[in-house]
Design a protein around this nucleic acid. Structure first.
Length: 193
DNA sequence: CGTAAGATGAAG
DNA sequence: TTCATCTTACGG
C-alpha cells in the first residue's frame, strides 16, 4: 500500500492523470487556517477535445494549460463561479484536470464560512462550490506552480480500480459522449451520481 | 468596439 | 426549468 506519487501523475496526459488524482489531497493555506480536501471527482480536458478551453489554442486565459504539469489553471465562468484545475502533461500541450468535487478533511469550519452554509454535503460537491470553499474568489492563482502557491497536492492512499467510475463529463455541449469524468464509486461528495 | 456563450449553482 | 451574472474570445 504505497501512496500515489503525485509528481509522476502530473506528467501524464490528462485522461490518464484524471483517474489517478482521485484520492489525492488538495491543501490550501489561508489566513484563517489550513484547508484540506480529498479529491473524489475529476474531469480530463486536452487540446484535441472540442469541449476543452485549450481546443482553440493558447490564449491569455488558457496559457497555463500549455505549461508543464504541476501548475494551477483557475478560470471564471457563468458570471459567478471559479473552477480549479491541475495542469498535467508536457509543456506545449494544452491539457488539465478539472477538480469537480472533493471530500472535506480539515478546516471544515473555514469552508463553512467561505460557503456561507453549514451542510457538510454541499460544501465541496461541485467545481464552483469547491473553489468557494477553498476561498478562491479570483483567478490570481491561475498559472502558479503548485509547489510555490498557497495550494498544494498530496498523494493519498491509492484507490482500487474497481472503485473508479468513468462517465460522460458534465456541463459541456461538445464531445458529451466521451467518458472523461472520473469519480469514486458511491462517494457522497461526488457532484452527480 | 459589440456581443454571445459558458467545464455552474440555487431556487421555484 | 429558469435565472443570476460577467469574463473571455471572436467578429466587425
Amino acid at each position: 500500500m504505497s501512496y500515489s506519487v503525485v509528481g509522476e501523475i502530473l506528467r501524464l496526459p490528462s485522461v490518464q492523470a484524471a483517474p489517478k488524482l482521485l484520492g489525492s489531497y488538495l491543501v490550501r493555506q489561508t489566513p484563517a487556517g489550513r484547508i484540506k480536501v480529498r479529491i473524489v471527482e475529476t474531469e480530463a480536458y486536452h487540446q484535441e477535445d472540442p469541449a476543452s478551453h485549450s481546443f482553440r489554442g493558447r490564449t491569455p486565459r488558457t496559457a497555463p494549460m500549455f505549461e508543464a504539469g504541476g501548475r494551477l489553471y483557475v478560470y471564471f465562468t457563468y458570471g459567478m463561479h471559479y473552477a480549479v484545475n491541475v495542469v498535467v502533461g508536457q509543456k506545449g500541450i494544452g491539457e488539465a484536470v478539472l477538480v469537480r468535487a472533493a471530500e472535506p478533511v480539515e478546516g471544515i469550519e473555514i469552508m463553512r464560512q467561505n460557503r456561507g452554509i453549514t451542510d457538510m454535503n454541499s460544501l465541496t460537491n461541485g467545481p464552483g462550490k469547491l473553489a468557494q470553499a477553498l476561498g478562491i474568489r479570483d483567478t490570481k492563482l491561475s498559472g502558479e506552480r503548485l509547489s510555490k502557491s498557497s495550494i498544494s497536492l498530496q498523494g493519498g492512499p491509492p484507490i482500487s480500480q474497481n472503485e473508479i467510475v468513468s462517465a460522460p463529463r458534465i456541463g459541456i455541449k461538445q464531445a458529451v459522449d466521451l467518458p472523461w469524468r472520473f469519480y469514486i464509486k458511491g462517494n457522497s461528495f461526488v457532484s452527480k451520481l
